[in-house]
Design a binder for these strands. Structure first.
Lengths: 238, 238
DNA sequence: CGCGTCTATTACTCAGACAATAGAGGTGTG
DNA sequence: CACACCTCTATTGTCTGAGTAATAGACGCG
């Protein structure tokens, strides 16, 4: 991308409060249906002003995690209302170790979306988009997935494909899927389970997209995600 | 669902401000990169307090529509950062007539996600989930898509299938897809283009899921969405 | 012409008050 | 005793006004 994601942003209190509360909620520390302490009490407890606390709650409400009503208070929404596709919510889910079925669900979603996206991208990709995939692939090879640069390149590769579908809602899944890629990859390396080098898999996808071969792109991407799931499964202890 | 969606909620100022601004942004009234007027000026212009205005901005920021930084001000984010899968953002996009390629993209996404979801649901659905689909189907038949009740039943049907995949991230797409269903259906009827009765298509999907036949469920759902796209296409003037 | 410094602008944070709402519990009436 | 209605209170919502912190851009210096 054109700018670094986590640089230059000063730490704002309402943001960090939202993050802390969000993590607590998605990790089950506050169960759905539970009501948070009142604004005055809770904001005092957190040592912040009521305004800052309220802004944090508004952010969580915008992501579907909580609902506020007068007199009733602010309560954690039922899980079905959570916006799990929101990149931030997904990131919060990976702060603590997420439950194994959840990780599996993410791969299942990737297995549905990414092969189809690769097929579309094979037909619609523009030259600059292709160049971006090539660049990402090259960076992956140079740095390896052990380095932050390499992982960034991995995410860029997947993101570029979704972007190349020319489908805005699909592209919106890009941030979700790259987040999933990021956390699962980091997860694997945290466990010191060094997997196969996935460079060949990525290369096959790229070749198919470059050739404009939709069917082959779909197959190659299916293989890629399946193998990534296998790698992760061994780490999850199956 | 267990509760009415739009009932019992008192109109809160920050919510309506967020809605108005959100609509203005997604409809292109504020271009990406444009900076909004300063907090003090803009809140005065909107005749609300700074707190209410700020809470509205926090909500928009949580959905990726704007970014605030000191000195720079609050500016509209680039479209790629927008969380188009957020149900509210999607709803805002349909307040004004959305561009035709966007509607088409939504159907393209549904064509990717829903058949796969139907296939999963055919294998994993529980008896209560099946009952909910049956109920929704029945309601659709009784009320017809011309009535709000019938449309609600249509959404419930699609929602129930996504829920029955047992995949939480996929289920999160439920609110997005039902929103898409809702607006495109309303759109068709607004144009007085009364389409075929889609009840048979839905019935075929249900039968396949009830029978546990994943392949047939996938095909039936593909047919359903394709036909819905055709109906919408004629309205869009092709 | 490059680079550090200064300043003005902007969002951010805080504090305290009042309004509006909804639930609880009491009250009156049949 | 049952039930509808009313009041009362706790909680979020809204407003005002002030002060703080960060930073983009101007400015001056080497």
């Amino acid at each position: 991308m054109t700018e670094r994601p986590s640089a230059g942003a000063a730490p704002r209190i309402h943001t960090s409060i939202a993050r802390d509360l969000g993590v607590a909620i998605v990790s089950g520390q506050y169960q759905p249906g539970a009501v948070l302490p009142g604004e005055i009490e809770f904001s005092a407890q957190l040592k912040v002003s009521r305004s800052a606390y309220r802004e944090a709650v508004r952010m969580l409400a915008a992501k579907g995690l909580v609902e506020s009503r007068t007199k009733t208070g602010t309560r954690v929404s039922e899980r079905a209302r959570w916006n799990m596709l929101d990149p931030e919510v997904l990131a919060w889910a990976f702060v603590n170790e997420p439950p194994e079925p959840f990780v599996r669900s993410l791969f299942e979603m990737r297995l549905i979306v990414e092969p189809a996206a690769a097929a579309l991208a094979a037909v619609r990709r523009t030259e600059p988009q292709l160049a971006r995939m090539r660049q990402a692939l090259e960076d992956m090879g140079r740095h390896g997935l052990g380095t932050p640069e390499g992982r960034q390149a991995d995410q860029d590769f997947h993101s570029a494909i979704l972007l190349a579908t020319g489908n805005e809602p699909l592209a919106a899944l890009s941030s979700t899927i790259t987040a999933a890629v990021r956390w699962t990859t980091a997860f694997k390396y945290r466990k010191n389970a060094v997997p196969r080098d996935p460079l060949d898999d990525h290369g096959a996808v790229f070749a198919a997209i470059a050739a404009g071969d939709a069917a082959r792109a779909r197959e190659a991407m299916t293989a890629l995600v399946s193998l990534a799931l296998e790698d992760t499964s061994t780490v999850l202890g199956e």
